Amino acid sequence: MDDLASGRPHPRKSAGLALDRRTMFAGLMAASAGWSVSSGAMAAAPMRPFRETGQAIDLWPGTPPGASAQMPVEKIEDRSTIPGSPDRVIHGIARPRMVAFRPERPNGASVLVIPGGGYRWMTLDKGGYQIAQWLTEHGYTAFVLIYRLPGEGWANRADTPLADAQRAIRLIRARSAAWNLAPDRVATLGLSAGGHLCADLASRFTTAAYVPVDAADTLSARPWCAAPIYPVVSMDARIAHAGSREKLLGPDPSPRLEALHSVDRVVTANTPPHFLVHAEDDPTVPVENTLRLRAALKAAGVKVNTHLFDEGGHGFGIWNIAGKPVSAWPDLWLDWAGRVGLG
């Protein structure tokens, strides 16, 4: 059954999210068993400083699978309007990789961070590097996944992001001894379309998304746990994020393809525990996506910790949450990660 937010302060404090715990949790209320539905104002917190560090690790030896003769050309665009708060997006990825962020005091666990961007591009900073830096402040080694985008000419477009995510998990496990990491405790956390990939990986980790290339591919791609945050879930045109659906499946997908890539329809009893977050006023990805995923997880007997907030919109991550009910989610994740044995 779901975990219910207890309202007790967590002993760990997120740097840059130094909120008074009584204020933070005052807005949380249990609306029904297994739910956390929040409202009310939160204490203001300063914007966290941003530091770009990390080591890039290529996912594939040589050319990635499914490449065409005309490879995409990588481009990075900065959309920032706030000095000191970068907001870059990246697309045209021909060199899929993960960028490693290492904590000063590692706890042995790692998290694959999957940025969103509607499968059109990836939000490199706000959906990736800033999340990774927050994780390192709590002892987690973080790997930001720079995955190939499905609409950029790759064969088997709909499974191209999944292939990169599977490969990343396997590489982390294959190199865990060299990096002083526990090979089993590898989690995933994804936002928006990255939440779709996060949840897709969690249920389709055995799917043969690519032909094995080396010994790392003998290892499991199943995450220890998964955290899709305001995720794209369904490819049902009635509630799907239209841009993600078109980029992933093409302009006229068959009902079979739509079903296969609707994550709520591929959950199994072997899907790992999930942590779900969504704002009910999300204008971009309807909250029904998270509700469907929760229902599927419950039906399969998978543990799921669900947090809905009455306001917060879409794309809040950790950079745009000061003074909002959604500012509770990072500490809620830290508490949950500890309880499922990750940290």
Results as ranks from 00 to 15, higher is better:
Leu297Pro: 08
Pro253Ala: 15
Asp78Thr: 08
Leu308Tyr: 11
Glu74Gln: 15
Leu171Ala: 02
Thr136Arg: 04
Ala215Tyr: 04
Ile82Met: 13
Leu291His: 07
Ser176Asn: 01
Leu260Cys: 09
Asp335Asn: 12
Val326Phe: 04
His241Phe: 14
Ile76Val: 15
Glu246Met: 12
His91Cys: 06
Met29Ser: 15
Thr81Asp: 05
Leu297Ala: 12
Tyr140Ala: 00
His314Ser: 14
Phe205Met: 11
Pro272Lys: 12
Asp282Phe: 08
Tyr119Leu: 07
Arg245Asp: 13
Tyr210Lys: 03
Thr63His: 12
Leu135Glu: 00
Ala237Arg: 00
Ala158Gly: 14
His261Asp: 03
Arg170Gly: 07
Ala242Lys: 10
His10Thr: 02
Val304Ala: 13
Lys303Gln: 04
Ala337Glu: 04
Ala18Ser: 07
Ala193Cys: 14
Gly34Gln: 06
Pro65Asp: 03
Val213Tyr: 00
Ala26Arg: 14
Ala202Tyr: 03
Gly40Arg: 12
Leu293Arg: 11
Ser254Leu: 11
Pro325Ser: 10
Ser85Asn: 10
Arg95Thr: 11
Gly315Thr: 00
Leu162Gln: 02
Arg294Phe: 03
Ala226Met: 05
Gly66Ala: 13
Ser203Trp: 02
Ser39Phe: 13
Leu260Arg: 07
Thr268Ala: 02
Ala299Pro: 00
Ala300Glu: 07
Ser36Tyr: 04
Ala177Ser: 15
Gly343Ile: 08
Leu191His: 14
Pro46Gly: 15
Pro9Trp: 03
Pro115Gln: 10
Gly323Cys: 13
Gly16Pro: 02
Phe25Asn: 10
Phe143Gly: 12
Pro9Val: 09
Asp78Met: 03
Arg120Met: 15
Pro231Leu: 09
Val340Asp: 08
Val263Gly: 01
Pro223Arg: 06
Arg222Gln: 05
Arg95His: 12
Ile90Leu: 10
Gln133Val: 01
Glu52Ile: 02
His314Tyr: 08
Gly312Tyr: 10
Leu145Gln: 05
